[in-house]
């Protein structure tokens, strides 16, 4: 039991893509988080370097979303430290607005603003937060929309778009703020397989362009192919970590069981 109790980075060190030259973009150290009596993160440590793609996998309820939300200061932690793009998230004096400029997040449920068109959804933050003019923001919106292959949907309202298209607009909305780090929380889980593909393709392009990303996903094939680091979470801990190859040769019975069930 104790042999696998804390197997953090017990696995391999062959990380081909991790250009660990620079300081990590994200560093979690011994993060503990509880909701009341429920311990959800139990000493999570994790480094993500510039340009790295970290995929977090694990059973439902293992704390993946919570970890992501802690990274984006949407939850407060009880113990440990989190550094994101030079911001100390655990510090009560955190400048949230500055953090928001560096980090984009996309959720499973898209969360587009229903009363605004795709373009207006994207224009909102650049005008409100960065003080862009409407014209500048519109040009930007068109640019990021074509980036996700939706240039012709600029004037459409969310309800006129498929789930996959809405999710791509949500990604474009985040990208318009030019973040240094993108977080994705099961962004394809609400989509059927065909629509999943179009969203994953957008994310793959982003990865190729060098965006640092942390994604919670159930798409094992995608994690294996795109991620430079795969993180298996179990019971609020980083149970096993490695490259995509880790999925072919799990070291812990828990990950083996998870992969067995998941595929």
């Amino acid at each position: 039991m104790s042999a696998v109790a804390n197997p953090t980075r017990a696995a391999r060190e062959d990380t081909p893509r991790s250009s660990q030259a620079g300081a990590p973009v994200v560093r979690l150290h011994d993060v503990h988080k509880s909701f009341g009596a429920l311990k959800v993160l139990d000493g999570v440590s994790l480094d993500v370097g510039p340009g790295e793609i970290a995929a977090i996998i694990g059973q439902s309820g293992s704390g993946k979303s919570t970890a992501l939300r802690c990274i984006n200061a949407l939850e407060t932690i009880q113990q440990g430290t989190i550094h994101v793009c030079g911001h100390a998230i655990h510090d009560p004096g955190l400048d949230r607005r500055a953090l928001r400029r560096d980090v984009g997040i996309v959720f499973q449920s898209y969360n587009l603003f229903p009363h605004l068109t795709a373009e207006q959804n994207i224009m909102l933050a650049p005008t409100c937060v960065k003080g862009m003019t409407k014209a500048q923001a519109r040009d930007l919106a068109r640019a990021v929309l074509s980036h996700v292959g939706l240039a012709e949907k600029a004037e459409h309202y969310p309800e006129q778009l498929s789930g996959g298209q809405q999710q791509r607009v949500a990604i474009a909305r985040s990208l318009a703020m030019r973040p240094k780090l993108m977080l994705f929380d099961e962004v394809t889980s609400a989509l059927d397989p065909q629509l999943t593909g179009e969203v994953l393709k957008v994310m793959e392009n982003l990865a190729r362009e060098g965006m640092t990303m942390i994604l919670v996903t159930h798409e094992m094939a995608f994690a294996r192919k795109v991620a430079s680091k795969v993180v298996y979470m179990h019971r609020g801990r980083v149970w096993e970590t490695g490259t995509g190859a880790m999925l072919d040769d799990p070291q812990t019975p828990e990950l083996r069981a998870f992969i067995g069930n998941g595929l």
Binding site: N72, L74, R97, R100, R101, V103, G104, I105, F107, S109, N111, L112, F113, P114, H115, L124, A125, C128, V129, R173, S174, M177
Partner: peptide, 27 residues
């Protein structure tokens, strides 16, 4: 108005006043 809408606005960097004005009040 769903909490998730407020969270999305927060994550984009909108202030509370901006969130109310642009995201909450009209719907």
């Amino acid at each position: 108005v769903h909490k998730a809408q407020l969270e999305a606005a927060d994550c984009l960097g909108l202030s509370r006043v901006q969130t109310y004005w642009h995201v909450v009040l009209r719907p």
